[in-house]
Design a protein around this nucleic acid. Sequence first.
RNA 1: UGCCUGAUAGUAUAAUGGUAGUACGACUGUUUUUGGUGCAGUUUGUCUUGGUUCGAAUCCAGGUCGGGCAACCA
Length: 554
Amino acid sequence: MSEEKSLNFIEEIVEADLAAGKHQSIVTRFPPEPNGYLHIGHAKSICLNFGLAQKYGGKTNLRFDDTNPVTEETEYVESIKNDVKWLGFNWAEELYASNYFDQIHGFAVRLIEMGLAYVDDSSSEEIAAQKGTPTQAGTPNIYRSRTAAENLQLFEDMRLGKFADGEKVLRAKIDLASSNMLMRDPIIYRIKHAHHHRTGNKWCIYPMYDFAHGQSDAIENITHSVCTLEFIPHRELYNWFIEKLSIFPSKQYEFARLNMTYTVMSKRKLLQLVQENHVTGWDDPRMSTISGMRRRGYPAAAIREFCDRIGIAKRDNLIDISLLEFCVREDLNKTAVRRMVVFDPLKVIITNYTGEGEILHSENNPEDPNGGTREVPFSKEIFVERDDFMEEPSKKYFRLAPGQMVRLKSAYIIKCDNFVKDANGNITELHCSYIPESKSGSDTSGINVKGTLHWVSAAHAIPAEVRLYDRLFNVEDVAAAEGDFKDYINTDSLTVVPHAYAEPALLQDSMGVGFQFLRKGYFCADKDSTPTKLVFNRTVGLKDTWAKEVKKGA
RNA sequence: UGCCUGAUAGUAUAAUGGUAGUACGACUGUUUUUGGUGCAGUUUGUCUUGGUUCGAAUCCAGGUCGGGCAACCA
């Protein structure tokens, strides 16, 4: 078990800091804004932040970055907590930036007293214009030279609600000529007469991200504040506030956010999909949200493994979603319980089978020697998959065809003797004969067949609905595609099989587990499933080299 | 056009001046009562031009290309 895994650049920084005695132990944080559901990109950040603390014996706080009351809701807070827990992580403390509003307000006052912040009466457009452009310095306005006393009074009046939204803002007084636009006197407090999901109506002024995040990090003694690349320009500001306020010097480090093929990874776009009913909700199994993946049947361990495999670096990336699917299959192959379900039934009559029927046994999981077996009823009439028969088979087709033999999984070898067509030329029935000596487990027939089919006994079959999912978008790089991302939605991303036939064992199974429907893929019971109406989601298909072969031939 | 960032097989990610490796993918073969799984193997790479050096993916300089920055969002 002593596999040496190389460190990512953040782990290297942490190890160097620890080795240098800069910190006794580390503190990280996962800081979502509660304005939407978490997605797989957040999972990467969660695994990184919690993983760092786990690996180096530190702790991780869950901190809600709730500084914008108009977009944030308790529903989101709850879903985020649920998702982090489900992913398998425990936070040291559940914290909120809003817990620190008093302290942050105090920081602002201190800045004003030091002459490093001022109240600006300009409109948002005026401020934008006065900021200049990246190649042109900004210009100061008359408010910039207000005295500390005047600013103190004005800021207090802002807090007391004497002004309307947008009438005034508090700005840090830094450098209007900085090449970093964020240093050109950034707004640090704005007026919002809005109800906050935690502080209610106590405040009508709220700190901006830049005046809340680093401050919260400092208050919590966060040693390594890890965020994504787009915050690189914020680092200069982050450090400026820490220096001027003489608070705990948290350090910000940035890594590249996760992008994945055939999907979107922004809360704004995900919200749009939900609101405009392109999906059924945040937990629609096609969504890249944690809750969607959970509902679809992705194991938490598979998501963690995926996050581990993609690594941490600073280069922009577009990860192939098939890597995630690989991780899901890898996990489920070891754990999923095998069952047989026929999606598109074709009746097979075993003409020489004279018995009443019998109970056969089949292993629950060939990968797990301790997995046990379940009972599978067999009888004269069974269903097989319609595409497991071809009237005129191609040369490498190992399934049923006139005169061709296959094994029925865990049962007998059968031979197709005849088939019946209706008036329209559709095949309605297969007539086969079975080889009595070929019974699974006690086969003395000496016959070797190339194909093995899944099947269900017609008399014992139970109905089930099966939902098949495909990628939500039909272009690889959705974010880079021209125009509206919604133009690329795959309208065939959901296929419902309303009347599949399942083997009866499935009725007794506990529904929290992952299933493999033999030769069909991995499935899980959907939350819509009831004892009288089973509903399953296809988590991911099996690797299908035959389909690939067929495609090549076509 | 200014500033900030980055560039290693198809996709990711290592090698931290000394043999370019790993995973996924693709392709072979093999095993298999899942055309699944497993096993074995093959394949493909240092953006570019110079420089430093015995030796450069790594250090330096120029170029090229990608991403970000001018929200009272985070």
